[in-house]
């Protein structure tokens, strides 16, 4: 894992799908029964399965105007609940590369970062006007600029927010943290030996 393999993520642009509602939990994103698997390969096939069935064809993911979207626009506290990476994995394998909403659950946002998926928050008013704009014109291209923390749609540029640590990991290509963490080398063992419960009291 040399640094030449690092992939930086500076921007995402594409069409977007609007999923209205707050507090969408990870059980809804991928119901637990589909987690009975030792790989993530099939996770994209069951994204929002129960919600889509219950909506009988009226779920945004089944709305052909939104087919092929790479960005999902959500509400508040998206991804709350379980720490299961199966949730962002299923979103990613379905084709999403970025999420725009008013807020994200901490663990969900962390998992997204580990996969190189972008979560950017907008304030309530901007999020709502973005949702309306996309619903009116689903074919428009939405662009997220990670460094500038902006979302651009047909009607203009909106200022958003991506926490600094996450932003830098995306921009520097350290979203997959393993190699970065490996760099600490012996310092890890030094920290361990300073702790009573690890090295003995």
């Amino acid at each position: 894992m040399s640094s030449s393999e690092l992939t930086t993520i500076e921007a995402v642009s594409g069409t977007a799908c609007v999923l209205r509602g707050d507090d969408v939990d990870t059980d809804r994103i991928i119901p637990a029964r589909f987690m009975k698997d030792i790989t993530f390969d099939a996770m994209g096939n069951h994204l929002f399965e129960d919600a889509r069935k219950a909506a009988k064809g009226n779920h945004p993911l089944d709305d052909e105007r939104f087919f092929g979207s790479e960005i999902l626009v959500v509400g508040k506290n998206f991804g709350c609940g379980s720490s299961r990476e199966h949730a962002p994995q299923s979103l990613m394998r379905f084709g999403f590369r970025a999420f725009i909403g008013q807020s994200f659950a901490d663990i969900f946002a962390g998992n997204c970062c580990s996969l190189g998926l972008v979560c950017i928050t907008l304030d309530e008013a901007d999020a709502e006007s973005l949702r309306e704009s996309i619903e009116l014109d689903p074919e428009q291209t939405i662009s997220i600029d990670v460094a500038a923390q902006t979302v651009t749609c047909r009607s203009g540029v909106m200022r958003g927010s991506i926490p600094e640590g996450t932003r830098n990991r995306l921009l520097e290509g350290h979203w997959n943290a393993t190699s970065l963490l490996m760099d600490a080398g012996k310092k890890i063992e030094e920290t361990a030996s300073s702790l009573g419960y690890v090295s003995g009291y």
Binding site: F40, S83, R84, E85, H86, P88, Q89, I107, G110, N111, S114, L115, N176, A177, T178, L181, M182, A184, I188
Partner: peptide, 12 residues
């Protein structure tokens, strides 16, 4: 934590 972080903790 999520699974990628489980990997990170296993590895480091």
């Amino acid at each position: 934590i999520g699974t990628s972080q489980v990997r990170d903790v296993l590895a480091t």
